[in-house]
Every structure is written in structure tokens, then in C-alpha cells.
Design a protein around this nucleic acid. Sequence first.
DNA 1: GTAGAATATTATCAAATTGTTAACGCAATT
DNA 2: AATTGCGTTAACAATTTGATAATATTCTAC
Lengths: 223, 223
Amino acid sequence: MSTRKKILIADDEPDILEILHFNLQAEGYEVHTAKNGLQAIEKAKIIQPDLIILDIMMPIKNGIEVCNELRMLPAFQKTLIIFLTAMSDDGTEVKGLESGADDFITKPIRPKVLLSKVNALFRRVPKESSSVQLGDLQIDREKYNVSYKNQDITLARKEFELLSLLASKPGKVFLRNEILSKIWGTEVIVGDRTIDVHIRKIRQKLNLDCITTVKGVGYKFEL
Amino acid sequence: MSTRKKILIADDEPDILEILHFNLQAEGYEVHTAKNGLQAIEKAKIIQPDLIILDIMMPIKNGIEVCNELRMLPAFQKTLIIFLTAMSDDGTEVKGLESGADDFITKPIRPKVLLSKVNALFRRVPKESSSVQLGDLQIDREKYNVSYKNQDITLARKEFELLSLLASKPGKVFLRNEILSKIWGTEVIVGDRTIDVHIRKIRQKLNLDCITTVKGVGYKFEL
DNA sequence: GTAGAATATTATCAAATTGTTAACGCAATT
DNA sequence: AATTGCGTTAACAATTTGATAATATTCTAC
């Protein structure tokens, strides 16, 4: 349901890059890397990571510069930033935190500590408004509503859940069994026709050809 | 506009307590202290601080125990917690972060670093303003009153809390469970009808169509 | 092209959910 | 002691929903 968190690591030492990459990836994050400050900024703009880990001492642009520059942009106002540094010098650390960093890790890096800090940071961040935009169709799980071309459409609960499920992976075919277990659970037993009826109601209300039947298999959401 | 943030510091060393107290107070925070784990828990319940700074090594109850115990309570789910420790031992640090701490500071404490971290943490937390303007409707959490088109409306406490909760995230659907745990707490058990009745009273008093029922899910505030 | 299977459609009904009103206990206030 | 207001619940009404049966239609394999 929730896309993986994206992390961008910027450090000029390949070893560190690799270690962090490995550990964070193993933890389930989508990891990207950059080997200097400039590249970090460029990649950040493309990837739009949830967290950026910046080495302070880097060629071309140092971590603090990168941080300051990114914080200027509205898109990075809320992005989490962690600094890495070899120095255990007060001044640098303070400067880093004041430039809008969320945490600070001193080298040598202990992977477990890093992971814990990363996890702790994400725990704090209010989770994204699970809203999905698909063309003119918008599905907002939090607000529990669906709108097409900014026109609200009222769906009953099961209808909403079903559409929400199908739309969570556009193009993917959901088997009838899959749908049953995800929406009705494994305990409840309902007939196959029930799904059809709900599908029909959704199609009717949306008045939009976006749910395709895959005969003998299931349904998928498209366009 | 914004009440001062409350910080509770727990440490058994009076010197540290004093230094932190002085520094944080100078920074504009309302500081409280406790000299052991048990006292920390008691004071925390009364004061409801925004941030708790816990020494790990404390008599009676250590910092991690305190943290775990507080995190059990719904009121402290979101409270920020920072650990202090003399050890630079990986294991402890990880255990601390995993028990739900938000940061970690190793002794000897460098006041500037501490202040920066504290400020950084608060910067992350979405500040809830005490007064909300929504169209012609105004909700003032501090004064505990609601007005529509500058006309005061008298709501009973539960009614106010309920409206205030719903209005805190306009559009978001609050599940009945969510409402129960946030307004009545997890201990108290009240029937489902109770929510309805309060909703009705609010609707009646506001005489404004702003609370939408999402059947089978909950309620949401809109417009 | 046709039989058989799978899905679509429609109407119906029971169950689940919420709305409404009145009444009760309790605490604070007069 | 009497009054008032609040929070809760009970009881019942009103509404919505979800499941099914029955029937029609479409698709697929042969």
C-alpha cells in the first residue's frame, strides 16, 4: 500500500557509499547515491527522496551547502536530511543542525545506529496523505473520497475499498481470490457474483471505462 | 499565540539538571525536572510535556524503562523523547532508539548541540495552532469557544473536543475507533451511539452542514 | 457458429449502520 | 435541598449497504 521510502546518499568515499547502500537497502528502502555535492542536488531534484544523507566533507559542494541550497526549494522544505561527519566538532554540528538538518551522525559509522536513526526519523514524519492521482481521477484514502475532474463521487465502503485496491496497482490484474481475501478477509465467504455487482456499481458511478474484465482471471484498473 | 513548549528533564546528577535547565530556559522553553525515573513518569503525566529528555542511567527506573512505559500510554504516543547517555555503546543506543526515542545525545553534553537538536526536533513537529479559522467558522482551542460569523456558539466540553478533533484535519475521515481513543481514551468504554448523539448536538447547535457521515467508517469535517 | 462457462445486470431483502428522542445519573452550582 | 447542565444510554425509526438469486449477455474453446 505504501511505496518504499526513497533515500539519497551523498558521500565521496565509495566504501561508505557501499556500506550504507547495502544496509539501507536490506532494511527495505529504495537507495540512490551521489558522489559529490553537485550530483546530490541534481539527483535529489529528479528522485525527490524522502531522506537525504549528506557527508559534510565532499568535493565540489559540501554537505552544508547542499542542504542550504535544497532547503531553499519548496519541494525540499520537508525532506529529511541527515549529516555525516568525521569531525566531532561542536561548531560544525551546530551549523549543520541550524541549516535545517534533522540529525547528525559522526564517523566512524555504526550501521545499526544509522538504521535506528533513520527508522526513528521516518516514524516521526506524518505519513503521506495516501492520495492517488490517476489522470483526472483522484482517490484519497484519508478523506475516503473519490473525485473525477474535481467532481466528488460517492462510493459505499466496499465499493471504495475495491476501487482503491484495484487502483493501487494500475495495470495489475487482481485475481478474484486475491480480491476476496484482501477486501473480505479469509474468514468471510461471499459468492463470486458479489464482486461483479460491486464492480458494476463502481463502473456505473464513475461512468468511466477504467476497470477491465479479464475473463477467467479477474479485474484490473487502467487509465 | 503559541504557548511555550514544555520540556521535562530527568537525570540523577544535579549538575546536569541545572545546566540543561538553564540553557533550555534561556532558549524560551518551560522546563521541568525530575531526579529519577519514577518521578519522571509521575511528572510527565501531570505536566504533559512536549519533549522529555531522559538520562538512561537513573536510579529506581532507567531511561529506557521510562520510555517504554510512557509509550504505552496514548497521551505519550507523540511526545518527543531524547536520551542522554555516558556510554557510546552501540547496543544501548539502538535499544533506546527502538524503544521509540527520537534522538540520542552522548555525554559529555555540549549545550549548543543539545539546543540545536531540541530546536531541530520541534521544527519537525507540525505545530498545532490553538485557533482555527475555517470559512466563517472559528475554533479557539485556548479560549475553548466556537463562533460562526462572529456569533458565539456554546458547546459542551465533549462536543467541543469532538468538533475540534474533526476540524483539526478538514476532509480527513476519523474512524469511530479513532474518535473514541482520542477523545475518550483507551480505558473508557462508551457505546457507539454516544458519538452519534454528540455529533447530532454539534450539528444542531452549529446549524451548519459541515460534518459528513461516512457510513461504515466514521465522520469528517468539511467546509 | 455453437455450447458452455464466465460475467453483467437487475431487483430484492436482510443486516448493518446511523439518526433521533427521551430519560437517567451525576456533579457542580445556587 | 433544589436546580441546572452534561454525558451517557436505551429504545426505536430511518437509512444505507451488501449479498444473493434470477436472468440476460458476452466470451471462449471447440
